[in-house]
Design a binder for these strands. Structure first.
Length: 275
DNA sequence: TAGATTTCCGAGTCTCCGCT
DNA sequence: AGCGGAGACTCGGAAATCTA
């Protein structure tokens, strides 16, 4: 999938943009991860936290290490057991990135790391990113601005993947929709090879749930329309618009509510679902 | 001994195949 | 397209264990 070019007058570098409270900035090359579909939602959240922690304040250099208390990675569970699983999954995930000059780069999501320190055996995680990955972070000119509190609230990986991709495009001033072939859209959502092979299943289990969650909780509104060739759906048009003040208030309120029962709550609201 | 951490478990929820 | 259901997954909490 081709990454959209940013409007040239505002071609910030990642280095120059500081995240506001509760947001993190993630360069486009990382967001369009190809081949990470086997990562769990927990692992994705953990990775987003690690990225935010590492690059939120200042830009890294090759070989730099960061230390974060495990407490901040655990979430609501009190144990490290799930953190270790996620770290292993991230280290095993090889990302294929299409560079602007046409080269293809393959790199692990997460580099070497140490858990614990001499004082507290299980207290901290010291981690690094591969030296091939750090320049990507530094050179990025197109990026998404992601709201941590929103990302934490998504319950399906398809909603998170779609949110990441669209939140980046929402910032482009003159673009309000984009057409994806079904193949590209599956890749964007991170649908595993061979799964959800028919449009019916893709719509029911990936697109509809993701739309429901995003429209309930994000700062923008999404519409997805199938594009048919004959009777067969061959592509989708994804359109987006920013919410008004009332819409933003409702979204903020839903994010703050507990996850239990969310599905039923948001289903009762107006749905913009694929026909 | 108190607080931190790990292990285990079960309820709730989600995914997606097979069928109509 | 929609339904039913099996199996997988997520999550929070209780009990056990560890550490200072």
């Amino acid at each position: 999938m081709a990454a959209p070019e940013t409007n040239s007058s505002r071609a910030f570098r990642t280095l120059e943009l500081k995240p506001r409270h509760d947001e993190l900035i993630k360069p486009v090359e990382l967001i369009d991860i190809v081949g990470a579909s086997s990562l769990t939602l927990v692992a994705r959240r953990l990775y987003n936290t690690l990225i935010g922690h590492a690059f939120g304040k200042e830009m890294g250099i090759e070989g730099q290490e960061w230390t974060i208390p495990l407490k901040e990675l655990r979430g609501s569970h009190k144990s490290n057991e799930r953190i270790e699983d996620s770290i292993l999954a991230l280290m095993k995930t090889v990302v294929t990135v299409r560079l602007k000059d046409g080269r293809t780069r393959r790199v692990q999501l997460l580099g070497g790391n140490d858990m614990g320190d001499p004082d507290r055996p299980h207290g901290t995680l010291t981690y690094s990113f591969d030296k091939k990955l750090v320049p990507l972070l530094r050179e990025s000119t197109v990026f998404g601005k992601l709201e941590l509190s929103v990302m934490k609230a998504f319950s399906t990986k398809y909603a998170l993947a779609l949110y990441e991709a669209i939140s980046r495009r929402v910032r482009l001033e003159h673009v309000f929709s984009e057409v994806f072939t079904l193949e590209a859209f599956r890749e964007l959502l991170g649908v595993p090879e061979g799964k959800l092979s028919t449009y019916g299943n893709l719509n029911q289990y990936a697109i509809k749930p993701a739309l429901l969650e995003i429209n309930a909780m994000a700062s923008f509104e999404l519409r997805i329309l199938p594009i048919k060739k004959g009777r067969k759906v061959v592509a989708v048009r994804v359109g987006w618009s920013l919410k008004d003040v009332d819409g933003l208030k409702a979204a903020f309120a839903e994010v703050k509510r507990p996850r239990v029962g969310r599905k039923d709550r948001i289903k009762n609201k107006v749905e913009k679902v694929v026909p």
